[in-house]
């Protein structure tokens, strides 16, 4: 099931670098030409057929299997079992809180980074992009184990605090806490937020900021009244993406989190592996999937789905 919840993430890893020239016309002053709703069939789109077949075989079919299983293994009672389970309900709230905190942190830390990327010169931008992508290109597992080593009771942080600085006598409890999960998750998910914000910031016409300056706005007021509001669609797009990915995360909470916080991804795994109730696990997965779709549907009303899913694909028109 974990692989299932990771699919959107993997799909988005292709070509994540937004080209420096990829300044789309969104947010500009001129009205966008109305796009045709039903374009004539484009036979070239046939080249997408193998990919479509793969998606159907690897995603749609298993999804149908999961839905069927959730209703028939042994019965739709699976759903009732979930809603009556206090443990599952707690894990839902824990998951929501975790996803919200991680999303907030990603945007808070990611915004200045994206801003620096958008406003620096070519060389600096390349450096910042590569630095961001290095994290992206490293295996999720490796990064998560690295955090384990860093945050362990005998890890780097505690060694420095205890042996070098002598600030504490007992090791500070870092690993197996929500804190460790937040750090690990932010590390994994922040690039999505940064890329969405970067694309949005780059699409802001520099003349609009110049105009504000010329009209007597101090630099910070230019930011507050012009740059920040114009970058909000990027924040929504990046935030939704991070939130949705965080909802279904499994590996990082499993390796860095404590036994007391069971997030939904782990709860699903537990049902299948420990309690041997694949039907209940499947029902949970269906609900998680439905929640993700709901979040996307709501967000799409504000910023357009293409912008959320198009993160890191160098939107060009």
């Amino acid at each position: 099931m974990s692989a299932l919840s990771q699919i959107p993430a993997r799909g988005l890893e292709r070509d994540p670098v937004t080209g420096p020239g990829g300044r789309a016309g969104d947010g500009g002053g001129t009205p966008a030409p109305a796009r045709r709703r039903f374009p004539r069939p484009d036979y070239w789109s046939g080249v997408g057929l193998p990919g479509l077949l793969f998606v159907i075989a690897a995603f749609a079919v298993p999804m149908v299997v999961v839905v069927v299983k959730s209703l028939t293994d042994p019965s739709p009672e699976n759903y009732a079992a979930i809603f009556s389970s206090a443990v599952y309900q707690r894990s839902v709230w824990d998951t929501l809180r975790m996803a919200l905190v991680v999303t907030g942190l990603c945007l808070l830390i990611g915004y200045p980074y994206a801003y620096a990327m958008a406003r620096s010169g070519r060389a600096m931008r390349t450096f910042l992009t590569v630095a961001l992508m290095l994290a992206f290109w490293t295996s999720l597992l490796v990064r998560t184990y690295a955090w384990q080593i860093i945050l362990n009771d005998t890890g780097i942080v505690n060694t420095v605090l205890r042996e070098w600085l002598g600030l504490v006598s007992e090791p500070v409890r870092l690993i197996r806490t929500p804190f460790a999960v937040y750090i690990g998750m932010v590390h994994v998910l922040m690039p999505y937020a940064v890329l969405a914000l970067f694309a949005q910031l780059r699409s802001i016409d520099p003349d609009v900021e110049r105009a504000a300056r010329g009209m007597g706005a101090r630099p910070w007021r230019v930011f507050a009244r012009v740059t920040l509001p114009l970058s909000l669609p990027g924040a929504v797009a990046g935030g939704v993406l991070v939130f949705v990915l965080a909802l279904g995360f499994y590996i990082t909470p499993q390796l860095l989190g404590g036994a007391r916080q069971i997030y939904v991804g782990q709860a699903i795994m537990q049902q299948i592996e420990q309690f041997l109730k694949p039907g209940v696990g499947a029902a949970m997965a269906v609900l998680l999937f439905a929640a993700v779709l709901a979040v996307l549907a709501v967000a799409a009303r504000f910023v357009g789905l293409g912008r959320i899913l198009g993160v890191g694909m160098g939107r060009r028109r």
Binding site: G27, G28, G29, T30, D205, D207, V208, R210, A211, A212, R213, G214, M215, G216, A217, R218, P219, V226, P229, L230
Partner: peptide, 19 residues
């Protein structure tokens, strides 16, 4: 600095605030 020059300016692409 620019913001204290109190000069009016019109840009080629208008540079209106879209929001």
């Amino acid at each position: 600095p620019v913001h204290r020059r109190e000069i009016g300016m019109v840009f080629q692409n208008y540079a209106l605030f879209p929001h």
